[in-house]
Simulated assay, not measured.
Amino acid sequence: MTDTATPSLTEAPQATWRHYLELTKPRLSFMSVITAMVGYLAAVPYSYWDLKRTLLVVLGTALCAGGVAALNMWMEGDTDAKMQRTAGRPIPAGIIMPGSAFVVGWVLCIAGLAVLFKLVNGMSAFLALATIVAYLAIYTPAKRWSRWNTELGAISGALPPLIGWAAAGRSNPALGWTMFAILFTWQMPHFFALAWTYRKDYAAAGMPMLSVVDPSGRKVSRWTFIWTVLLVASSLMPTLLGYCTWYYGTAAALLGLWFLRAAFLFLDPAKRETLARRVFLISIAYLPLLLTALVADRMIFKL
């Protein structure tokens, strides 16, 4: 006799802690934490550095980032199921129920806001709340109806450095907004290149990304280049405003030329298919190198 207790091949696996961790998009959340810490370390008064406060900023930001990622997955479960690269996520795969993701997301967000508000300061909590609202109420819905969703989403993606800046006591406000500008402009070439690579997935999900509404790729490559130029200009502002030395300025210029060259080559229709991934990979390497140079310059020269 055959074993009738054998599970069906279509039966979803039982949820484990790894699936709940995946719900928080750990790599994206880690980037939010890192950029918040860049804002904090660049702005903190060098006569006073508190390890406990630093860890609380990390904890609060991580909880908020993980929570908003889980809520984003809850909101996009139907579209994730239509895209090959996201169909295996916990909700579309049927591993975690949407209601569970909703509860987990809000518990993490509320816990993160409480940590920042009670143990850090009110302004950092306010900016974290603004990030949550911008991501869930503006960016996530806009992905379904607006070609400008990337630009709208860049607002929430650029706010974490201001969370760190606020946690440090809001010193050097121009530096805080300069870091916002760097993160804002960086996201454009980064996500345009990603969206071009996965344009068929986005089209299948009915998302009007620029790469979907512009199948030729001319607008995608043009805007990628324009935003990379603006990124290079933003990256030089800390030196031009006197917050960093020309050691950082030189590093920013060299990194910018590296990124700019890839964005320029991306304009070539014959190379667009292969260069999209190169632009994306360079963007991933560019950001940590630039931010490391900025923080190192601030910590070494204590401007």
Rank of each mutant, 00 (worst) to 15 (best):
F225M: 11
T6L: 10
L267S: 08
V220Q: 07
M123E: 13
I282G: 03
P208D: 14
L241F: 11
L210N: 01
L108M: 11
R278V: 12
D78Y: 07
L175N: 00
A137K: 06
T16Q: 06
Y135P: 04
T86W: 03
L210V: 14
K302D: 15
I284H: 04
S216I: 10
T239I: 05
F180H: 11
A252H: 04
V57H: 05
S234Q: 06
W49C: 09
L28T: 04
A233W: 08
R144G: 02
M37W: 09
L289I: 06
F301A: 11
T6K: 12
L289A: 08
P288D: 08
M179Q: 03
R261M: 09
P26D: 15
W227L: 04
I95Y: 02
E151G: 14
R277V: 05
L152D: 01
I91S: 06
T61P: 01
A251N: 02
G60A: 13
D201E: 10
R85F: 10
A233K: 08
T24V: 03
I226E: 00
Y135R: 06
T24A: 06
N172G: 04
L9V: 15
H190E: 00
S234R: 06
L136D: 14
A270Y: 12
L23H: 02
A101R: 00
I163K: 05
T6D: 13
A93D: 07
A137Q: 05
S234K: 02
L21E: 03
G122H: 13
L267C: 08
S283D: 02
A296L: 12
R53M: 11
G77E: 06
V212M: 05
A130Q: 09
L294I: 07
Y243F: 14
L183M: 14
A5L: 15
S221W: 06
K302N: 15
I226K: 01
P269T: 15
A204V: 03
R298D: 06
L241I: 05
G122E: 06
I138P: 01
R272S: 02
A285Y: 15
L63W: 01
I282T: 09
P173Q: 05
W227E: 02
L183W: 10
Y243C: 01
F117G: 00
G105A: 00
G105W: 03
A276T: 12
G242A: 06
P98G: 07
A270G: 08
K271D: 11
L281N: 05
S100M: 14
G99W: 07
K118V: 15
L240E: 09
P173K: 03
R272Q: 07
L129E: 01
V58Q: 04
S211H: 04
L231F: 12
K200F: 14
W106N: 04
A253D: 02
A270N: 10
Q187Y: 05
